[in-house]
Every structure is written in C-alpha cells, then in structure tokens.
Design a protein around this nucleic acid. Sequence first.
DNA 1: TTATATT
Length: 376
Amino acid sequence: HLGNADRWPLILTATKWTACQIISTMETQVSNGPSGTSLPNGPVISTNGSTDDSKTNLIVNYLPQNMTQEEFKSLFGSIGEIESCKLVRDKITGQSLGYGFVNYVDPNDADKAINTLNGLKLQTKTIKVSYARPSSASIRDANLYVSGLPKTMSQKDMEQLFSQYGRIITSRILVDQVTGISRGVGFIRFDKRNEAEEAIKGLNGQKPLGAAEPITVKFANNPSQKTGQALLTQLYQTAARRYTGPLHHQTQRFRLDNLLNASYGVKRFSPITIDSMTSLAGVNLTGPTGAGWCIFVYNLSPEADESVLWQLFGPFGAVTNVKVIRDFTTNKCKGFGFVTMTNYDEAAMAIASLNGYRLGDRVLQVSFKTSKQHKA
DNA sequence: TTATATT
C-alpha cells in the first residue's frame, strides 16, 4: 500500500482533528532493585562467559520527548564512566520512545545515578532512574488497562487489589486535569506477563470490595505496535505542527541546562554543553528533472531505505518515485536520496516541513533538486 | 487506552 501515496492525504485528513486530551496522572515510583545476590564491585563474569550487569545497568523512564542521545549520554556520563547507553527510539520514525538504558562500568556509579538523578525534573517530565531488570520475553507486554474503577479508589487501593497477583512495577490512575478527580481508569504494569494474565482472570468483571460496578481489566494497548496508518498520522501531525509553527531549523545546539531550566529552576549538577550539529557540506546534484518535482534529501543514515522516504513524504501528497543512493560495494546509503512528487504545492509543503526535520539523531536537509554541476 | 518499561 506504500505505493498509493496519493491517497494518504485523504486518509490522514480524517484523523487530523482528533482532540488531544491532557490528562494528569499519579505515578508510583517502584524501585526495581538489582536482582541476584550481592557481589563485590566490578563486572561479574559468569561461568558461561556472559556479564552480569544487574548492578550496573539502569533503565531511565519518562525522558522528555525532545531529549537526544547526546544529551542523554551527557547527563548520565556526568555521574561516572559509562560502558554503554542507548536512548530507545522508534525504528521507523526515529522518535524517542521516552526511555533509555545506561550501563555503567562501576556499580557504585549506577547507585549514585539513581540517588542523584531519579526524580530529576526535565521540562515537564520527572525522570525515573532504576535498575533494569534482566531482559526477557517474560517481562514484556505486562501492562494492564483497568476501567470502571470507583472514583473513590486511590492508586494505593488499586495496587493493593492487584498486588495479590504479582509484583507491580508501575501503577497509575488517570485523573481529570481540571478537577483532579479520578476518571475511573488506570494502568498496572506487572513484573511478569503471566502475573498480568492471572490478574485479568481474577479481577476482570469483578466488583472491588463494596463497589457498585464491576471493573474491566485487560492488556493495555501497546504503543510500540502502531498500525501503519497511525504511524503516518503521527508523521503527518508532526509535519503539520512544524508547518504552522515557526520554522526553527537555524541552529541545533543542545544544552542540557535548557532542559533543566525549563522545569522548576532547579539545577542539580553543572550543566554540560553539547554541540551535536556537525557542519554540513553543500551538496548539489546534476541531471535534468523528469516528470514531477524532484526533491533532494540529505543526511539520511547509512541504513536508510526507500520505505523511510515513502513514509516521510507520502503524507504530503502524491509521491511517484523515491530513491536512496547507495554505495556500490557496501550497499549502504551514501547519505542522500531523491523523491519525486507530482504537485508543486505538495512538494513545497513537504520541503518546508521536512527540511530541518530530526530523523533519529540526524537533521535532514530537504530542498528541490538543483542542477548545479559541482558542489562548492 | 497514558506519551512511550526491556536495548
């Protein structure tokens, strides 16, 4: 269906006005705690050769949407030497998923990071820093959506009700932004998926204590499993915001203290300056333009493929052709590609919206293809 | 049915 580019604007228009309700929430801060037995400092090598990183590896949740990998590394690198870290991003759009992992060399630094950075306010978020549980299929998809809760039920009450089925990692009750009253809807994340399954069996359709109505307990929608259309909608809406708002692709200098100052004026460590923007050489290309409007897209990642170009440009209108330029020997993208769009207005809109767009950790340069023979 | 809790 990617080829039906000219149908996308219609599909997307139908969903673009969906109201976005702002909901305030209460969030528990349940510490994961390092698993396993207490061991001396330093990397622990098991008999099978794998490293035990349960005392060094952290998961960081509730990161601001616009935080970059560089900022993430800088913030956590201020505590101690990092073995590895990763801001988790959507595979296709490159958008941050709002969480990441930091693996320190020294377990003491992991402990220090929790004590220092857990609860740090960055913009509108309060980040959570805790030990990462060992990665396993059994801990995935363990998030439950609960509705029909009595309005009087507190988060603590809800946890008490669910805790008989297993270890609760997070719980949350959604409240009306204005009144602060419970909306009777909440989320419970268990440590293990099978615990969540048991909770559904035991509590779905049941009336809590003296409640008048039964509650509904089911698996929460998995935000990472968006449909293709939802993904396009998201891309389109991002683009639409960029188009209406002031275009701000002048400089992309990221300062951690900007993130911090935007919250409560609290500075908890000396700010670190990052300049993640490398200067980009001017690139112009040769050749005549065929039917339609040929667009030059620069700063694609080596892994970029045609689908990313379809997904980026499709929402703006009729796309007739996309091409990623690859190195002949490695078959990796050489950093640029071309998109042909039928209509000038749509092409112009796409360029205005996508030039300066951050795709993953890269800032795209998008323009009409020029016919200059050589770069400067 | 939340902006995003397992790389």
